[in-house]
Simulated scan of single mutants.
Amino acid sequence: MSRTSARTVKHTWISDFKEITKMRLALSVVFSSVAGYLLGVETVDYTTLLLLALGGYFMVGASNAYNQIIEKDLDVLMDRTKNRPIPAGRMTVQTAFIIATLFTILGIAILYSINEQTAMFGAISIFLYTCVYTPLKTRTPLAVFVGAIPGAIPFMLGWVAATDDFGIEPGVLFALQFFWQFPHFWAIGWFLYHDYKKGGFFMLPTGKQDKGTAVQTIMYTIWTILVSIVPVFGITGQLKLSIVAGSIVFSLGLFMLYYAIQLFNKMTEKAAKQLMLASVSYITLIQIVYVVDKFIR
Rank of each mutant, 00 (worst) to 15 (best):
A6I: 09
H11Q: 07
W13V: 15
S15W: 12
F17S: 12
R24I: 00
L25E: 00
L27F: 02
V29W: 07
L39K: 11
V44H: 04
Y46I: 10
A53L: 12
F58S: 11
A65M: 03
I70S: 08
D73N: 15
D79A: 05
T81Q: 01
K82R: 15
K82I: 09
M91Y: 11
A96P: 11
A96I: 09
F97A: 14
I105L: 13
L106W: 01
S113Y: 14
N115D: 14
G122E: 03
Y133Q: 08
L142D: 10
V146H: 08
G147S: 00
G151I: 06
I153E: 04
L176C: 14
P183I: 06
H184S: 02
F185G: 03
F185P: 11
A187Q: 01
W190Q: 01
D195Q: 11
G199M: 06
G199A: 13
P205N: 07
G212L: 06
Q216W: 13
M219S: 14
Y220N: 01
W223H: 11
S228T: 15
S228L: 09
V230M: 08
S242D: 03
F255A: 00
M256R: 04
Y258R: 02
L263D: 13
A271G: 04
A278H: 05
S281I: 07
Y282T: 02
T284M: 07
Q287R: 09
I288Q: 11
Y290F: 15
V292I: 15
